[in-house]
Design a protein around this nucleic acid. Structure first.
Lengths: 333, 333
DNA sequence: TTGTACGCGTTATCAT
DNA sequence: ATGATAACGCGTACAA
């Protein structure tokens, strides 16, 4: 027979709690808590009884209650624009490696460009759900300025304009300049650029690097959306230009893959008739036909650096990119 | 001057809580709670004062405390083997669409084959961190049998052997048989199969479907690891066989892409000299050269069905696949 | 319609 | 070395 309860005890009855362990082991909850926390002031014999009870019941501490009491969750949330883009995958791998080593676990939230959803996920930081936020979105959700200051937020791969946010990036302008220079040295004089979406920070940086090498005589970049379809469409537009380019520098690999397809459909051979240069070095870049020459961003290291900076509160270093030579580029004929 | 406190108030002081709203609005916390919950028994005028205070302070309810009190978090956790594989991305998109519509948010955990990590994430279910679990891993973490029974766990894309778990899948054996039949009708008589890893459930199902059509006379399948590299290696081994196949059915698109590359390197033309058939229809499948003929799994619908079944507690329907004809297959010459 | 009191499961302080 | 107790922030039965 149970006593009447004032407050409704919501659903999920029966889950074994610390109190149960205490009863079984014949000690108080405080002792159980201490034993589980590894306090040295718990007798070996008492500890043994507690551990036996834990094993017997399969007890695990309630992270929600613990989080409420401790005001921290040991969880990091990674916010990304779309999980469908494989570029982010390897960054997250790096994040997870470093986080796990530091005793944190990682959750991923995909926002799909939905500001509402982005804000909702970011709110987890306010409400104690997560201890830190890693932004791969290139945008800072509403009402996070104060947390950013407290070092609970860090941006990766893309700088966020107008914010003083610690950021893990390569020098995108230099990387774009290096790519364009590579094509120039191959002997190309008409090097076009398929850029990201207009207004995007990365787009601007890569356009700047390209423009620095090709000069003002070159035509304007063609803007895309970082997708394969948009790359193909952009390539088609370039091929219709009066003075067709002999080389194209693309702002990411997916657009380069789209460009490759459009070039093939137009009957051009790559690299004989047209050189194509990518950016990122996603896994698929090595498997296109021909394999893609591209700029590699050290994505795993992005993840490591992000966690290191987040947990230590130190500003992250700027990381180095690599030019990966494959077969989609050659001297013009 | 603050009163002395018995218990250490851990870190994060200052975050505005419901009590603050109550003070500003001149009401009690219970009224605030009711107002925020949309209870009809709160006067319009009182509600207005509360809402003003909320806007003024930017208050949001503490989800951790709320979760502890309510014993639910309105969060779903998706467990996947590796986030680097784009196949899972679109499933998650579907999960997110359906979950958001139902007022749930979605978190993703990538296990990277680490059983430890898998169990740690799954524990969130025990400890109230999440209300439901979606398994894309083809494996059930330890100590979840009871929850599975309570309908808090569902498997997607891959059945989990030995468990009575609601599962969202296509009929993989039928799909493999359909693919092989398609090649057979094209006129191929020597159809090889590049399979997934040995011991995998999906592998077995797809091998069975293929075998049913080719009969016992065909050689054994070549096993791979669902990666592009392993697909290339498998193709190389097939090309070394005395009676070289004229068509290859691959257990996923990534291995097909690897096979395509190996075929090209060997100087074969696809589809003239060799037909290649994929599985999944990932985004890249339409952008290979030639574009890949493949089986499409309705991944977005996988996500929708998973959430529907999870929240309603009803068994999910088996979903339909589609054969997508592209240019990597043709009649043998 | 609003306020009071209690409990969700845990940890830290204090006393023994 | 161990136990009693308060508090983390919130929701609800009950009293007013």
């Amino acid at each position: 027979m149970t006593l009447p309860r004032k407050t409704e005890p919501p659903a999920a009855a029966g889950r074994t709690k610390m109190e149960d362990i205490a009863r079984i082991a014949g000690v108080s909850v405080s002792t159980v808590s201490r034993a589980l926390a590894g306090s040295s002031k718990v007798t070996g014999e008492t500890r043994a009884r507690i551990e036996a009870a834990v094993r017997q019941t399969g007890y695990v501490v309630n992270q929600v209650a613990q989080g409420l009491r401790l005001q921290r969750s040991r969880q990091i949330l990674v916010l990304l624009p779309t999980i469908a883009n494989p570029f982010f995958g390897e960054i997250i791998l790096g994040v997870e490696e470093a986080a796990q080593a530091a005793g944190y676990s990682v959750l991923v939230g995909s926002t799909e460009g939905d500001l509402e959803r982005e804000a909702a996920l970011a709110r987890q930081l306010h409400t104690g759900g997560v201890d830190g936020l890693i932004l791969l979105t290139g945008r800072i959700p509403d009402g996070l300025a104060d947390h950013a200051a407290r070092g609970q937020v860090i941006a990766v791969s893309e700088t966020i304009p107008g914010q003083h946010l610690p950021t893990v990036v390569i020098d995108n302008e230099e990387a774009a300049a290096a790519a364009t220079t590579y094509l120039r040295r191959l002997g190309h004089h008409n090097i076009a650029h398929i850029a990201g979406p207009e207004g995007n920070v990365l787009t601007a940086q890569r356009v700047r690097g390209w423009r620095r090498i090709v000069g003002d005589a070159a035509g304007p970049p063609v803007f895309g959306a970082f997708t394969m379809d948009s790359g193909a469409a952009a390539m088609t537009r370039l091929l219709a230009r009066p003075n067709r380019p002999t080389a194209v520098f693309c702002a990411n690999d997916e657009m380069a893959i789209g460009a490759l397809k459009a070039a093939h459909l137009a009957g051009l051979r790559v690299p004989e008739d047209l050189s194509i240069f990518g950016f990122d070095d996603i896994t698929f870049a090595a498997f296109t036909d021909p394999p893609l020459t591209t700029i590699r961003q050290p994505r795993r290291e992005f993840g490591h650096a992000a966690i290191a900076a987040l947990l230590a509160g130190t500003p992250p270093p700027r990381l180095a990119f690599t030019l990966v030579e494959r077969a989609s580029t050659a001297a013009p004929r």
